[in-house]
Structures are given as C-alpha cells and as structure tokens.
Design a protein around this nucleic acid. Structure first.
Length: 587
RNA sequence: GGAGCCGUAGUUUAGCUGGUUAGAAUGCCGGCCUGUCACGCCGGAGGUCGCGGGUUCGAGUCCCGUCGGCUCCGCCA
C-alpha cells in the first residue's frame, strides 16, 4: 500500500515515484494549487496537488478535509529556493500528487488533534483522537522501548517470564480487592490480584530461581494523579539472595530502562535509611532534587520559658522540634503568604507555624523571646542563617510534625522554584517491620511475609524492629519496593504472634503459602517496579493518565467505553447475584 | 467518607452589583484566491448557559439539590 512512511523521505528520494498513506493533518487551498500536510506515526510531509500535474488528483484534493484518510501516488521534488520549511523534518521536499484516493472521510472533530487545552473529559471520551497526537505516540513509543529494555535485561540475567493468575483468591490484608463472581460456585468470588506476590514466592519454592513478569495489578482504592485502579508492575523475585543482590539486579534493570529512554543513570544508587528520610525530609519518599533538610532543635527548647515548648522538649522520643532554614525566603514570602503557609500546615495537624525571620537588625519572630540567649546562639551555630532567611519550626508529636514539615518543605520548594531538573534516585532501606495502628497494636508496614531483621527483634518494643525491605524512590515518588521474604516457619510464627494472628487464622488465610514454605523453601526476595509511574516521570508529566492508553477517571470509570455499566438480569441470575442499591432500589 | 476548583456555540472562553437579541477567537459551511505551511480575503450557519428545583416582575448570574471532570485529605499491606 505504501512505499515509505512520511518522514522516511528526504532529498535523496528526489525524482522517485512514491506511494504514501495517512491522515490529512491540514490542507491549504489556494484556489489553484492545494497543499496537504500528510501525517502518519512518523510525522508530516507536504503534498502538492496542482491541476497542471493531474486534474483528477487535484479534484480529489479539493474534497479533502482534516483527518481524512488518503492514499496517494506522487513524485518527490525539491521545494525550491526560499520555500523550505525548517520546522518540518521533511521541510526541504514535497510530493507532487499524481493520483489520490480518499480512503475514508472524517466527521467534524470534537476537538483539534493535539490541542491539550481541551477538557481532559472530552479527550478521554475520544481517546483514540487524543492518541493521534504525535506527542502521545512518543510517550507510548518510549513506554514500549523502556519496558522491552527492562524485559531484555531480566531475560539476560536468568529471570524467567511466568504468567500468574488474574482470577485468584481474595486476601483480607492490604488494599480493597476487585471481586469477580463465580458462576459455578454460587456465592463465591475470585479477586483480581493486587500484585502477584504470593505466586512469585511459590515459584521460588518451585525452584525456578529467578522470575519476572510485567503484570497488571488491581486495587479498588480511591484514585490520585499518580494512581489508577489497574496499573502495571515489573515484578521480579529471586532465590538465594540478600538485599544487595536484589538491589543490584533492580539497578541493572532500571538502568537499562533509563538508557532506552536516552537518559544516563549512575549506579549504585545512593541509599538512605527510613529513619533518616523521615527525620530529614519528613517522608519515606523524599524528593532529593532540592535541599531544605530539617534540623533537630528539640534540645534547644528544654530551657524554654514557654511551657508548651518546654513540655514538648521533655519527651524527645515521642516528640519532635524541627527547624527548616529557607534561604532568601524573607524576600519571597509576604506576611500574608506566611499566614497561608501556616494554614497549609494546619490542614495536616499542625497547631501553628512558628518562624524566625533573619533581618539586618537581628532575629524577628515570636519564638525568639521563648529561647534563652545560649539556646539562640546554638541555633545560629547549628543553622548558620543569613540575612533574608526564614527559619520555620514545627513542634509536637513526632509523626505529625515530620509529616507536615515534610509537606511544607515540598510546598516551599515549589513556591520558590527550588526544584532542579533531572532525576534523583534513592533507595530507602531499614523500614520498620511494624507500626502501631489506632489502638497501638502492631500492623505490618509492608506485608507479614517480609523478613524481619532478627538482630533488631524486640518483643517489648515492636516499633523498633526493622525489616529487610527497600523502596526505590525517584523525584519524590515511590516507584517500586520489595523485600526479602520469610522462608522459615519459626520466624513466620513469631511475626504472626506479634500481629495477634492465631495459627488457625494464619492457616485459613495463607495456608497454601505456609504449606509451601514447609517443603524446602529457599531464601528468597524480590521487587516490583511501578511501570506507569516510572514512565510518567520519564515523560516529564505529573499525571499517570498521560502514560496509560485508556485510563480511568477519578471515579474509576472509562469515559470511552462507559465502564462500569449495569448488566442484563440474566447475567446476574447466572452469577447468583442480586443488586441492592443504597436507596433501596432493587434491580 | 471529606475539602477545594471547574461545567456557557464543535472547541477555548467573555459575560460586572440579576435587566434588551448571550459576545469573541478558533473550528465548520459557501464564495474568491497557483507557493502556502497558524495561508489570506468576503459571507453564513451554529447556544437545552451540565441537569432539577427555588427566590424574583425577570436567573448564565443568587440559593438548594444533583450529575460529571480535576486536585488534595482519609484510603492505597
């Protein structure tokens, strides 16, 4: 049908007869001569229809409108002196049309192809038109290259691509499951996998040694700009490994993907403990494209004449007093804007936002009078502020302070444009094994099959127990995570005990896994990379929908297919399902 | 579950303290035009102001509800 793609042609083809097919990107009718920009996935080339060359072709060209599909036969020629268009890759040449066939017409478009000012709602309804934009093709071309490169890396390193079930068993832990009713088993349900976690561990027990899969995962939780209900993980698992072995393979894989995107990644990627990330950046996924590290100043308020501050400083295990020095902030933030920063942190539980402005004539701010001379001097020594800086303070319960100060740090970096271009990877390691739930009971931070660091095992202080888990963070996004798994029954029992899970409960919930571990399970561990987020960052967008061909809206519907939708009564009957809507309307 | 922002020709939008026929740009249709590439010039058509109620002599505008989209909090082992 075609001899070339549009941008395959260049000056070397001058004089050649070619056949091209594609879409009419635009046309310019000059009464006599008609110009058509023909587009395919590679780009654009200009066609010229001149009645002097072919009356019939010109008559066809006269009928052409935007986004018509046409095929042409023509001859490549130089555009001539002064007529080159440097904006086009093919701007030096054009194709003189000898024959033209309109293969398909196009209705008036709901929006101009490539117009990103249009409502996303409309673009999603006509996603196939939105995807015609060459910029969109570029994203999916990148996604394809990156994922193939990572696949190849894993293949070359002994990882076997194995598919695991999509119809599987609901597990009570973790995110809400998407359920699929069983026709054959009345009243029973499959769950779509939140990840292939348990299956990949079983493959290790099976002795496959190294597994990977580019797997769709499903979580029925509320959406965000970087979260879709179905998403893709590059999932991997390996046997007879420790944390460094897994990290080395992941770094190799990510590097391969990165290089496929024409980026360079220097390995090894730096590592930071969970503790340091929380204390310095107030987040377990710190954005390291800018500084603004928090500094501990709780000791400087032990002698404060303010009762509240002095009290906070008394319990240095449970409380925090953090300082965030922002260079030049005094010139950037007005009084009113500083108030706005305060109401920003209040949303995250802050009682207020104290700050000290460093002026020509000294320190200004309510906190100054609550500090002793000696403490103030120590503060200056510790932070070394300069005139024009503002030091922000967060004080109170550890978890709350770290959270809102971490958010403040990011907000200020955005406000003051402190975020550098580029990619900053970091491994977060030494995660706590457990955290306290609302009632103060231990719950797993990762999942209950994560290997605890037994050197830190402490029945009395479960919050101090570390796990052998690691997250990969890029520019403030968690792009993946993994762990070494428990492969011994006695340790697994200890963990279940800690979680208050009885043997019967464990057997009922995860019996098949525990069984498997008792038949000669090798030490093993793995990792899963969030492919969508990774591609999102490589595509320089902050919206995961941009890198998913047919994404869902925030209410998890597909505007193109209108899924989800009601189904026929007969379908429900076969599935033994009766629908009961909240308003008491029966279906 | 909660908070905020948004919804007006095909599209992007203007529309003030409620007041004649809801205005513009672009797209679309028709005419003219042989070197444009955001082609140009002339003319024309095109609006349930998301939907439903209410207040009012009168609602795109005010109030209540509802639907949809986006961002965030909760949630996401």
């Amino acid at each position: 049908m075609r001899t070339h793609y549009c941008t395959d042609l260049n000056e070397n083809n001058i004089g050649e007869e070619v056949r091209l097919v594609g879409w009419v990107n635009s046309y310019r009718d000059h009464g006599g001569v008609i110009f058509i920009d023909l587009r395919d996935k590679t780009g654009i080339i200009q066609l010229v229809a001149d009645p002097a060359d072919s009356k019939e072709a010109w008559e066809q060209a006269d009928k052409v409108r935007d986004e018509y599909v046409i095929s042409i036969k023509g001859v490549v020629r130089d555009r001539g002196e002064g007529l080159h268009n440097p904006k086009l890759k093919t701007g030096k040449i054009e194709v003189v049309v000898k024959q033209m066939e309109i293969q398909n017409e196009c209705k008036v478009l709901p929006f101009a192809i490539g117009d990103k000012n249009v409502n996303e709602e409309l673009r999603l309804k006509y996603r196939y038109l939105d995807l015609r934009d060459p910029k969109m093709f570029e994203i999916f071309s990148l996604r394809s290259k990156v994922s193939i490169a990572m696949r190849n890396y894993l293949n070359n390193h002994g990882f076997l691509d194995v598919e695991t079930p999509v119809l599987t068993k609901s597990t009570p832990e973790g995110a809400r499951d998407y359920l699929v009713p069983s026709r054959i088993h009345a009243g029973e349900f499959y769950a779509l996998p939140q990840s292939p976690q348990l299956f990949k561990q079983l493959l290790m027990v099976a002795g496959f040694d190294r597994y990977f899969q580019i797997a769709k995962c499903f979580r029925d939780e509320d959406l965000r700009a970087d979260r879709q209900p179905e998403f893709t993980q590059v999932d991997l698992e390996m046997s007879f490994c420790n944390q460094d072995d897994v990290i080395a393979q992941v770094e190799g894989m990510v590097k391969a993907g990165f290089e496929a995107a024409n980026q360079t990644l220097v390995t090894p990627i730096r590592r930071m403990t969970y503790h340091d990330a929380m204390e310095k950046y107030g987040s377990d996924k710190p954005d390291l494209r800018f500084g603004l590290e928090m500094v501990d100043v709780i000791d400087l308020f032990e002698d404060s004449n303010n009762e509240i501050f002095a009290n906070i400083a008394k319990d240095q295990k449970r409380n925090r007093f953090k300082a965030l020095k922002v260079s030049g902030a005094d010139n950037h933030y007005s009084r009113k804007q500083l108030k706005e920063l305060e109401s920003f942190v209040r949303k995250f539980g802050a009682a207020g936002l104290a700050y000290i402005q460093v002026k020509e004539d000294g320190l200004k701010g309510p906190l100054v009078k609550f500090m002793s001379e000696a403490s103030l001097q120590q503060l200056l020594d510790r932070l070394k502020p300069e005139v024009g800086d503002i030091i922000f303070f967060g004080a109170g319960e550890k978890k709350v302070v770290l959270d809102y100060m971490g958010r403040l740090r990011i907000k200020i970096a955005n406000d003051m444009n402190l975020i550098k271009d580029g990619y900053e990877f970091v491994w977060i390691v030494d995660f706590p094994m457990f955290e306290a739930d609302d009632n103060g009971n231990p719950t797993p931070l990762h999942h209950p099959f994560t290997m605890p660091n037994m050197d830190t095992w402490d029945e009395e202080n479960f919050e101090d127990i570390k796990s052998i888990a690691y997250d990969l963070v890029l520019n403030g996004y968690e792009i993946g995570g993994g762990s070494i798994r428990i492969h011994k029954e006695d340790i697994q029992e200890k963990v279940f005990n800690m979680l208050g899970i009885t043997q019967e409960q464990a057997k009922e919930k995860f019996g098949f896994l525990l069984d498997a571990l008792s038949y000669g399970a090798p030490a093993h561990g793995g990792f899963a990379l969030g492919l969508d987020r990774f591609i999102m960052l490589l595509s320089n967008t902050t919206n995961i929908r941009d890198v998913i061909a047919f994404p869902k809206t925030q209410k998890a519907s597909c505007l193109l297919t209108e899924a989800p939708s009601p189904v026929e009564k007969e379908q429900l009957r076969e599935l033994h399902i009766r629908v009961k809507l909240p308003q008491n309307e029966a279906n």
